[in-house]
């Protein structure tokens, strides 16, 4: 008994230390660029007549717009000062913080896996299978997955390629890769909106806030302390991920369309802002998706089957989604949905 208790205390201590060290890392990592950046002590102290001219050209102080025969948005701007701000943000903030975010999420997942391990079923698998996702639902899910990762990978290459790929491919090789990725990213972009609409329509009805979701969240979904937490077809965590995906996806789609269709009359500032949002949201959604992938595969025993064959074991349904399980059993055609051989059973058609 005491052995068990001690090991639990040890485990809790390990978790606490890990979380603490992660917190420290999170706070320290963003400071690295500041520490590394060179400080120019002489800036602004010596008068330089060129600076005045330069300041005028950049229209920094005054809101002077030049005139030109050309008729297009921002045609009167000689040098877009805002572009420099944007470039600075991209190189100094988006790139390092984004990498840090993804790295931290991955580390948390790895730590969690090492310390807590996969969540096991609370009872032996019964062998009886219950339909969790229909053919159509699974098709929509994987369709979204395919397009999301095509976009994510090409997007990450465009953002991080110069650091990761140039050393491997060389500048010319990366040039080709980047061009290919840009074309593919732009072309696939709008199709993500199709996936998003399908995803929304297919899953929204079970992702509305319901009673018990808050309790689930307060208990941490049963992931930290163990013990059973009641949930419907989707638990609060899944619902949050759904809305992150939908709202994040919507932001990505809208900002992406603004960036692709540069002919609609939007100004550079709108474009720059779109890019900033696009980058931040993309990195957040990608990071959260790591957690989703972990929980759907190695993290929770018996979950993957729900998205491959469409079926989960009865025991899985009971321990993770007890209220949903009760609903299915109580339904009129409930007996049709609980079967022995999943591959050969009735599948709902849309």
């Amino acid at each position: 008994m005491s052995d068990k208790k001690q090991s639990r205390i040890r485990r809790h201590r390990k978790v606490a230390y890990s979380l603490l060290s992660l917190l420290v890392l999170t706070l320290v990592l963003p400071l690295i660029p500041y520490a590394v950046a060179e400080k120019d002590e002489t800036a602004g102290k010596v008068f330089n007549p060129g600076t005045e001219l330069w300041r005028d050209v950049r229209q920094r102080d005054r809101d002077v717009i030049g005139t030109t025969q050309m008729k297009s948005v921002d045609a009167g701007v000689l040098i877009n000062e805002y572009g420099e701000t944007w470039r600075h943000f991209r190189m100094q903030q988006l790139v390092p913080y984004g990498a840090a975010l993804m790295g931290i999420v991955l580390s948390i997942i790895l730590l969690f896996y090492l310390l807590r391990g996969p969540l096991r079923l609370q009872e032996e698998p019964s062998g009886k299978k219950i339909e969790r996702f229909t053919v159509f639902e699974r098709t929509v899910h994987w369709f979204t997955v395919a397009i999301f990762w095509l976009l994510a990978l090409t997007g990450l290459i465009l953002l991080y390629g110069r650091f990761v790929l140039i050393p491997i491919l060389g500048a010319d090789g990366f040039g080709i890769t980047a061009s290919a990725c840009k074309e593919a990213h732009n072309l696939f972009g709008p199709t993500f909106l199709v996936a998003l609409v399908l995803l929304f329509l297919t899953f929204v009805k079970d992702n509305i806030y319901a009673r018990g979701d808050m309790l689930w969240l307060l208990k941490g979904g049963g992931m930290l302390g163990g013990g059973h937490v009641s949930a419907g077809r989707f638990n609060a965590g899944e619902k949050i991920w759904f809305w992150i995906a939908i709202i994040g996806g919507l932001v990505l789609s809208v900002t992406g369309l603004i960036l692709v269709f540069s002919i609609l009359g939007q100004s550079r500032e709108i474009m720059g802002l779109s890019h900033v949002l696009h980058g931040i949201v993309a990195l957040v959604v990608i990071s959260v998706s790591f957690g989703h992938i972990y929980l759907g595969t190695a993290g929770v025993e018996g979950t993957l089957g729900s998205m491959t064959t469409g079926y989960v074991d009865e025991a899985w349904a009971k321990s993770h989604h007890d209220r949903w399980y009760a609903e299915v059993k109580a339904a009129e055609d409930g007996s049709d949905k609980i079967v022995d051989e999943p591959g050969l059973a009735t599948e709902g058609k849309s």
Binding site: V135, R138, W142, F188, G310
Partner: peptide, 24 residues
């Protein structure tokens, strides 16, 4: 048209893998 073709092909292929009939 490229987007239509991509969406169509992806949906068809994923459905092929997901539906027990086409998988068989």
């Amino acid at each position: 048209t490229a987007q239509l073709a991509f969406v169509g092909l992806l949906l068809l292929w994923i459905h092929r893998v997901m539906d027990p009939v086409t998988r068989l």
